[in-house]
Amino acid sequence: MTAYLKLDHIDKIFTRGAAATEVLKDINLTIEKGEYVSIIGHSGCGKSTLLNIIAGLTTASTGGVLLENREVNSPGPDRAVVFQNHSLLPWLTVFENVKLGVDKVFARTKMKAEREAWVMHNLNLVQMAHARDKRPSEISGGMKQRVGIARALAMEPKVLLLDEPFGALDALTRAHLQDSVMALHQKLGNTILMITHDVDEAVLLSDRIVMMTNGPSARIGEVLEVPLARPRKRLELATNATYLKCRQRVLEFLYERHRFVEAA
C-alpha cells in the first residue's frame, strides 16, 4: 500500500525563554487513502499539536508531513480542519460560512452559480440546507458542527482533519453526528484523521486507532487495527466481540499502562 499521508519523524519542541519542552517525540505514521484514523490520548499529550502540525498551523521542530509525497508545511484547503469549537464566523450566515472556503478553493475552476450549487450540495450532505440563511448564533451546537463539517468537506480536502469534533456536544447529539460522519465517510471515501479522547468514538469510527503516550515527549505507544466491517451499526456493535476486544485494548492502554499521572 502506498502512503497517502506520511508523518515523518516529527518532533515538536516549544521554547519559552530558556526553557524548552519537548511535546512530541519521533512521531511516525502513514495513512492510506480512504482510511479513517483516530489519534487518542490523555489531554495534554500533544495530540492537538500534532493535528496543528499536519494542518500546517504550527510547524514541526524536526521532521515533516508528506501528503502524496510532497512536503506540506503551511495551512491549506487540501487539509481542511473541523475545529472543536466549530469556529464558524458569527457575522456570516451558514451559507456564507461554507461559501467563504468554496469561493477561495474553486475561484478559477467553478463559475459563481456552480460554486453556490456546490455550497448547497455540501449543506445537503450534512442535512443543514434548511438553515442556510441562519446565523451561527441561531442554531444548536450540533448544527454548528455540521456546518463546520460541510465547510471542510466543501473544500474537497485530500485529508479531512477532525479536532475533537464532538467534544463539546451532549451524548445524544454526539452519537447522531458520529453516525452522520460514518455515513459521509462511507459515501465519499474521504481520508480522515480524527483527534479524540473518547474510546467508544475511536473504536466505532476508525479503521486504525493511534494511541499516544503521556507527554512531555509523547510518542505513539501503540497502533490498533479495528477489523470491523462497514457499515457499522452502533447497536449491533454493543455486543460484538471484536468491538469489545478493541475497546478493551484501548482502555487498557489508557488506564493501565499510561495512566494520566497529572490527575492522580
Binding site: 494542518a55 495551512p75 491549506g76 487539509r79 481542511a80 469556529s87 467563504l100 477561495k104 473544500m155
Partner: peptide
Amino acid sequence: YRNVAAVVQ
C-alpha cells in the same frame, strides 16, 4: 478565526 482564514488561505 485566524486558523479558519489560514486553512482557507
